[in-house]
């Protein structure tokens, strides 16, 4: 990779497209942390790809100066997986919301954790469906009353970190959009981690969950500490308050196998005539 002459600045990684997000949305902090992390790592912009699903979080690729893929609700992880396996040379991030990743995309989340592709996932958790205007999400509190569920969901929320650990994610952390420097550090660590990094970000929704504006008073930064065993990591997640941040789990595990780096895609289409002949031989009676 050719690093630029001047050290890049976070602003270099902003696309200039104006976000659709509401004033005070936590997602601005996530965007700031991402661009800080990219600048810190000095990533060439064209070598970064950000893949997202649908929801407020899904808009983030267009706001980053990188290649982006704004796909289907819940399906960011399979797209990111296909992209990373096909193009190991790229730094691939996936972004999604709590509904995107823990509800409609929950199966993909579990299996991506298991598969361990070298991708960094950022789950922007605001405990509500913002884009569809305020329905309870899989991380909503049981008593969060909304038009669609006037009594509240009445069921326990999904614990994303616990689910990630149980699914054997090799890097698990939580950050807070209100502390973009700490979050940027976590994202840097996630990108540097050679495997699937799950970073849940507490990202308040001032519009449909105005009470979350108080999160900044309650977040306990750095409370989560890298555990030595999976058991310990799970115990920490269960014991710690939901509004605590830090990296709780890091494990060296072989990432999902990827394509051998092709010199060029064009060449690939015509290469290996010898191997194709070998394949044809299997049809000889």
């Amino acid at each position: 990779m050719n690093r630029p002459q001047q050290p890049p600045k976070p602003a270099d990684y902003k696309s200039g497209v104006h976000p659709v997000w509401c004033k005070g949305c936590g997602d601005f902090g996530v965007l700031a942390a991402m661009t800080r992390a990219f600048a810190h790592l000095g990533l060439p912009k064209e070598q970064v790809a950000v893949v997202s699903g649908i929801g407020c979080s899904g808009r983030i690729p267009a706001y980053v100066a990188a290649y982006g893929f704004h796909g289907l609700h819940g399906r960011a992880l399979p797209v990111a997986t296909g992209l990373k396996l096909a193009r190991p040379d790229l730094t691939v991030l996936a972004a999604g919301g709590d509904g995107d990743i823990y509800s409609i995309g929950a199966a993909h989340f579990v299996h991506t954790c298991r598969r361990n592709p070298d991708i960094t996932l950022i789950v922007m958790d605001n405990r509500v469906y913002g884009m569809t205007k305020g329905q309870p999400s899989p991380t909503s509190e049981p008593d969060f009353a909304a038009a669609l569920q006037p009594e509240g969901p009445g069921v326990p929320p999904v614990d994303g970190l616990l689910l990630a650990l149980a699914s054997r994610a090799s890097f698990v952390a939580r950050g807070f959009s209100g502390q973009p420097n700490e979050l940027a550090d976590i994202i840097v660590a996630g990108i540097e981690h050679p495997g699937f990094a799950v970073i849940e970000v507490l990202s308040p929704c001032p519009t449909f969950r105005p009470e979350q504006r108080e999160w900044k008073r309650h977040v306990q930064a750095g409370l989560l500490q890298p555990a030595k065993t999976l058991e310990e990591a799970m115990a920490q997640v269960i014991a710690a308050p939901a509004l605590s941040t830090g990296i709780v789990w890091r494990e060296e595990r072989a990432p999902a196998p990827m394509m051998p780096r092709p010199e060029s895609v064009k060449e690939l289409a015509t290469m290996r005539a010898r191997e194709l002949a070998w394949i044809e031989k299997s049809f000889h009676p």
Binding site: R75, P78, L83, L85, A86, L90, H111, V265, L268
Partner: peptide, 14 residues
């Protein structure tokens, strides 16, 4: 997942 992986890989050029 299968079709979305295919789209991801193809977006990457394969």
């Amino acid at each position: 997942a299968a079709i979305n992986m295919v789209l991801g890989a193809s977006f990457g050029g394969l």
